[in-house]
Amino acid sequence: MIRFLLLTAFGGLSTFGGQALLSLGLHPERIVPLTAIAEGCAAVAVGVALFVTGMLGLAEAFEKQSLRLSQLLQTRQAPNSDSELADTQGLPIGGPADLASNSERFWHGYLRSTGGLCLALGGLLALVLILGDINYETYRATLGAGLAAIALPTIVLWIGGMAKIWRSHRDVLIWAVRAESLPEKRAEVVEIHQRRPTREAVFRSTRPAALCREARAVA
């Protein structure tokens, strides 16, 4: 879990830094050497690869733990009291509704983190297109201010999204560990009791025979 968070962080920083380097070096009045452009492209490519790998790893780890908890909830016996539900941290074992709510929180954080990086890249691209016709000094100063303005909401979105992902993964992991300590469900043995016929049933079953005997006697 932690390594995927680090991969996502390094990937986002590398992507943002590479895009910023390309933006500063592609002004018509002062184009940087091809080596700098190649370094910026490599930083963007590596950053995107790391970011995608980290996000996919986070999603896979969460889905595995959610599936594990779902299976445990089906095979483990539910506690008899609320005191048995609490673990050492006071966190109750989530049921299907809690699991669905936790999954919704995870994917909301997932979208926030991904949307933060997309916002940064889209904002930089729009800024470069808007400032393309001004002189280089003004372009560099304005682009620097724009980078700072774009970085702030990006970091806020990413940190908020990662916090939701971390809490969701932590809760599912704790629930799964706590559910493993519960006893397994016992197979219910259904005993089939043979019912004795009631008086009414006996009376109904013998009445036709008695009527037949009376009819024969009259005849």
Results as ranks from 00 to 15, higher is better:
residue 86 A to L: 15
residue 87 D to K: 07
residue 88 T to E: 13
residue 88 T to V: 11
residue 88 T to L: 13
residue 89 Q to H: 15
residue 89 Q to V: 08
residue 89 Q to D: 15
residue 94 G to T: 02
residue 94 G to N: 01
residue 94 G to S: 00
residue 95 G to H: 01
residue 96 P to F: 00
residue 97 A to G: 05
residue 97 A to L: 01
residue 99 L to M: 10
residue 100 A to V: 02
residue 101 S to P: 06
residue 101 S to D: 08
residue 103 S to Q: 14
residue 107 W to L: 11
residue 107 W to D: 07
residue 107 W to E: 08
residue 108 H to R: 13
residue 108 H to D: 06
residue 109 G to M: 04
residue 110 Y to L: 09
residue 111 L to R: 14
residue 111 L to S: 12
residue 111 L to M: 12
residue 112 R to W: 10
residue 112 R to P: 01
residue 112 R to L: 15
residue 114 T to E: 08
residue 114 T to D: 08
residue 114 T to L: 13
residue 114 T to W: 07
residue 117 L to T: 03
residue 117 L to F: 07
residue 118 C to S: 14
residue 118 C to A: 15
residue 119 L to E: 03
residue 120 A to R: 12
residue 121 L to R: 09
residue 122 G to P: 07
residue 122 G to L: 04
residue 122 G to S: 09
residue 123 G to L: 04
residue 123 G to S: 05
residue 123 G to H: 03
residue 123 G to N: 03
residue 124 L to C: 09
residue 125 L to T: 14
residue 125 L to A: 14
residue 126 A to C: 09
residue 128 V to C: 09
residue 128 V to F: 02
residue 128 V to E: 02
residue 130 I to F: 13
residue 130 I to H: 07
residue 131 L to D: 10
residue 131 L to E: 07
residue 132 G to M: 08
residue 133 D to A: 12
residue 134 I to Y: 07
residue 134 I to C: 14
residue 134 I to N: 07
residue 134 I to P: 04
residue 135 N to Q: 13
residue 135 N to D: 15
residue 135 N to W: 08
residue 136 Y to C: 06
residue 136 Y to N: 12
residue 136 Y to F: 12
residue 138 T to Q: 14
residue 138 T to K: 07
residue 138 T to A: 09
residue 141 A to D: 00
residue 142 T to Y: 00
residue 143 L to A: 01
residue 143 L to W: 00
residue 143 L to M: 00
residue 144 G to I: 06
residue 145 A to Y: 05
residue 145 A to T: 02
residue 145 A to W: 05
residue 146 G to S: 03
residue 147 L to R: 03
residue 148 A to W: 05
residue 148 A to S: 09
residue 148 A to P: 01
residue 149 A to D: 13
residue 149 A to S: 11
residue 149 A to T: 11
residue 151 A to E: 12
residue 151 A to V: 07
residue 152 L to F: 11
residue 153 P to D: 10
residue 153 P to L: 11
residue 154 T to I: 05
residue 156 V to T: 10
residue 156 V to Q: 08
residue 157 L to R: 03
residue 158 W to S: 04
